[in-house]
Design a protein around this nucleic acid. Sequence first.
DNA 1: TTGAAAGCGCTAACAG
DNA 2: CTGTTAGCGCTTTCAA
Lengths: 340, 340
Amino acid sequence: MAQDKVTSIDVARLAGVSQSAVSRVFTPGASVSKRTAQKVREAAEALGYRPNILARSLITGRSRIIGLVVAYLENYFYPEALEKLSNALQAEGYHVLVFMASQTAGNIDDVLTEILDYQVDGIIMASVALSSDLSSRCQAAGVPVVLFNRHQDDDTLTAVISDNAGGARMLASFLVEAGHERIAHIAGWEGASTQRDRESGFRDGLAACGRALFAREVGNFEPETARQAARRMFDREDRPDAVFVANDHMAFFVMDVLRFELGLQVPDDVSVVGFDDVPPAAWPAYGLTTVRQRANRMVEETVKALLERIENPHADPKRIALDAPLIVRTSSRTPEGWGR
Amino acid sequence: MAQDKVTSIDVARLAGVSQSAVSRVFTPGASVSKRTAQKVREAAEALGYRPNILARSLITGRSRIIGLVVAYLENYFYPEALEKLSNALQAEGYHVLVFMASQTAGNIDDVLTEILDYQVDGIIMASVALSSDLSSRCQAAGVPVVLFNRHQDDDTLTAVISDNAGGARMLASFLVEAGHERIAHIAGWEGASTQRDRESGFRDGLAACGRALFAREVGNFEPETARQAARRMFDREDRPDAVFVANDHMAFFVMDVLRFELGLQVPDDVSVVGFDDVPPAAWPAYGLTTVRQRANRMVEETVKALLERIENPHADPKRIALDAPLIVRTSSRTPEGWGR
DNA sequence: TTGAAAGCGCTAACAG
DNA sequence: CTGTTAGCGCTTTCAA
């Protein structure tokens, strides 16, 4: 029998105090006597009263809602990030309102509009870039934005990323030291900053050893495209003996093509390395050598940066890059002296 | 320069109409003349005005927010469900506010309280059960609840599930027909209705063929517990020749123990079957025979049921069970005439 | 069709 | 410390 909503007035009446007294009891830094607080709490308890966050936010200007835009839950890096982000924000008294966006963007515009309609206190864009136009709309609305696992060329937005270039550079020297001669790359979606940074880091790493890329295909971060890329690259005589796939998600599909379609041995015929260190990378059926993105730290920094900017909207944007360690497993030949 | 928020009053002033006229223009079924609407829209556009959903909900009693409680994103069935749910609700003009809960419950109480604080229009509990106490709190608050992939014994809540028992029954006769003699089960968390239904369906299926369970261990839906269960079950002479693992998530870890720790061949030494059909089940390195939960249909039904109950809070709760087809892959011996 | 006015449930001055 | 009084930005009667 859906009871009518209990308001602070009902509580006030029952406790024999004013309505504002009730409000104060539920407002952290307010001044109330123990006696009043006690009475109010009892009345509230009895009536099952809880303050209406929406009404409160109308006046405080804070909704305690963070908009999270995400576009790629098939990549298992993101469910993990989402879970941790949500938990971390929950611990700070915020909650996450989810907005799914396809990465082809375009609809990012509409999504952003919807987000702003909800008067969110902040926005986290996971795996989505933002035009400078959109970014200034948020600015205008006074809503801080933090990019998660992406950055923009213009340094106008705060971004939390891994050291993608550095990680890929390690991967390159690791493969060279393992004695590989024909080292290839399967790229992700070229619009992504992660892709650009990883590829350029990898090329730099090879160059530092006096090498260059032996072959390159684009997998677009998608399973089927990655499989086709693998087929084009490996179904021929002069095939690579090592390949850096731009993320783990694609690397699994590439390995499957190599082993089950083309009958190649990994790592004997070809070493495969990825990037992200999502959970299946550690499953022995893949044992993927990869670079770990420290999800916990990324989340920590993202939440910290966002809350900072909520407190102080005029703080300068900054780019936070976390180190990303090499994780050696069985999908790659191991250089002398690296030892598992 | 975080501009001050634009309100309907600003728009009204610019358009030379009353504030309520502005409101009407943005309220679907309201009566406004074309001329007024036109003027208002132009002014709104010029000022970048959008109605404040929170203020609106204060008066309409509808927040267009759906609370989603989820507790298990490591099981890749849930990211997929979350994505689809969010998309489906977005299409209906709702958005998802995420609440992470550990499945050990207990904190479900607090989570529920937080949810209700946000004045959500409805709640979806994915993979989380609800005490009848909590359930009546939602009732009292007039907030409809739909359980996703769970049901309660008391038929007091609307629930959308797969036909877990039926699916498991098929699995049983499939294994028997394939000629297996010693058929075992690795259970998930026994508090889950999915576990109970799958196990009893499986036992029924065996019984119908005049068989009984050869062995049983508990994996609790957790990787490490599942691995230990697999070791206890298979690291011995009189081991099963087939095992039904209660979900795919655990089945991967079980297969890894069998193949990489114990040196058993799958399916030659032992057939492994799971439940859910999460994406990695189709990866050739596992090729897991399993029962498919139709995520799309489950989401469809969940959204439909929830919206129905938002419209009509007094509708009777119902339990919706969707059929779940057997998906045969390479992790199991195939009976004569089943053909892949 | 339109404007004026009354709130939705709450917080935040402001006196006392 | 407490009650009174204004609103937050919006929707919704109610008359005109």
